[in-house]
């Protein structure tokens, strides 16, 4: 009995310590959520009052508070910052904010409407031109990366089921089941494959009004090797104070002034 009592006592103490730690963590989470809500309310009030800079500062701070958070809440904050930029008259920047927000909530119709409106005001082509290619791209891009991976997992399960049937039963029906499983898996994995194939490491948008000179080196006197049109999507390769090195769609690399580029991974 004594031999059993000591380990049980140790286990009980450990359990109590774990519960206490969990309670402290929960208390901390609640406090953070309350601070978050207060800051958000302050930003909304500033926006309603027309104090765009205050609203921008609050929502930017909220974004910075949880840099790894993703999903609808992050999309909401980015979208609201897009509204702020639009009201401030920085229409191209608002295009960047809405594009960034859609990366977290790609099926959000409100964000799409705001993006298309901002692009129209900025005299850019629509983000969704409505042709077959654009529709296909929008269909494949209608999922966040996590959703796309979940879909791919579902496809993998169907593939496993089809292959198991084929292994156990064989014959024509088995082959059909395996093929159907493979086709379904491919279809369900298509968004993930498309995302992995087309995603840039550090996507960005050129938000300068006129065509931006892409220079060979980060100085004003360097040769212009290309021109980046407003609204063009580029990839950020490097950065120096005041300058950003970008890779254009045709793989040309060069330096542009840092304010002319808007990072989309936010």
């Amino acid at each position: 009995m004594d031999r059993l009592a000591r380990p049980l006592l140790v286990l009980g103490l450990l359990a109590l310590l774990a519960l206490a730690g969990d309670a402290r963590a929960r208390t901390s989470e609640v406090a953070v959520a309350q601070a978050h809500a207060a800051r958000d309310a302050s930003a909304v009030a500033a926006y309603r009052a027309g104090d765009w800079s205050a609203a921008r500062a609050e929502w930017t701070a909220l974004l910075a508070a949880e840099p790894r958070a993703a999903g609808p809440e992050r999309a909401r904050l980015l979208g609201n910052l897009g509204n702020v930029a639009f009201r401030e008259g920085r229409v191209l920047e608002s295009v960047g904010w809405f594009t960034a927000a859609l990366r977290h909530a790609p099926r959000d119709t409100g964000l799409w409407a705001n993006l298309e409106h901002a692009r129209r005001v900025a005299k850019l082509e629509p983000a969704d031109r409505g042709d077959l290619r654009a529709t296909l791209r929008r269909l494949l891009g209608a999922f966040t990366p996590a959703e796309a991976r979940l879909l791919a997992l579902g496809g993998l399960a169907l593939l496993a089921a089809g292959l198991s049937f084929e292994a156990l039963r064989g014959g024509r029906s088995g082959r059909r089941a395996a093929l159907a499983g493979a086709a379904l898996a491919l279809a369900l994995a298509a968004p993930w494959i498309h995302g992995a194939w087309t995603a840039l490491d550090a996507p960005a948008l050129i938000v300068a009004e006129a065509r931006t000179a892409v220079r060979s080196e980060p100085r004003e006197s360097a040769a212009v090797v290309a021109e980046g049109p407003a609204g063009a999507e580029v990839e950020l390769v490097d950065a120096l104070p005041g300058w950003a090195k970008v890779r254009l769609a045709d793989a040309t690399e060069g330096w542009i002034p840092e304010p002319a580029v808007f990072a989309l991974a936010r």
Binding site: D40, G71, P72, T144
Partner: peptide, 13 residues
């Protein structure tokens, strides 16, 4: 533009 969204979203990834 459509208006800002004032209610925080609770659904996560």
């Amino acid at each position: 533009l459509r208006d800002i969204r004032t209610r925080p979203a609770h659904d996560g990834e």
